[in-house]
Computed example of a mutant assay.
Amino acid sequence: MTAAGAEPEVLPIAGDDDVVRVRQLVRTYAQRVKLSLVDQTKLVTAASELARNTLIYGGGGAASIQVVGDGRRSGVRAAFSDTGPGIPDTGLALADGWSSGSGLGLGLSGARRLVDEFDLDTEVGRGTTVTVVKWKR
Rank of each mutant, 00 (worst) to 15 (best):
S102G: 06
L94R: 03
Q40M: 00
V133T: 14
A4H: 08
P85Y: 07
S81A: 15
G61I: 03
S74I: 15
D39V: 01
L43K: 07
D119L: 10
V76D: 01
A30I: 05
A93K: 04
G91I: 04
A78R: 03
S99Y: 06
V20P: 05
R32S: 15
G105V: 02
T131Q: 01
G91E: 14
A3W: 01
L55M: 13
K34C: 12
A78C: 15
G69W: 00
R27G: 09
Q66G: 04
G103S: 13
D96E: 13
L55G: 05
T90L: 11
G75T: 09
A62C: 00
R52Y: 13
D96Y: 07
T90K: 15
I65N: 02
Y29D: 03
G75P: 04
S64Q: 08
A93F: 01
A62G: 00
Q66K: 09
I56L: 15
P12W: 10
D16I: 08
R23S: 13
R112E: 09
V19S: 02
D116E: 10
E7D: 11
D18C: 05
R72I: 06
R137Q: 14
E117R: 12
V19H: 07
T54N: 08
L106Y: 12
E7Y: 02
G5C: 08
D121L: 15
A95Q: 10
A93G: 12
R112N: 11
G15H: 08
V33G: 06
A78H: 08
L94Q: 11
D70E: 00
A78I: 10
D121A: 12
L104W: 05
G58L: 08
D17W: 03
I56A: 02
T122P: 07
E7C: 00
S102N: 14
K42Q: 07
S74Q: 15
V132D: 03
Y57K: 09
T41E: 06
P12T: 09
R52A: 12
L37T: 10
R32G: 12
A6V: 05
K136N: 14
D119W: 11
T54V: 13
R113C: 07
L50Q: 12
V130Y: 00
V130E: 01
G75F: 07
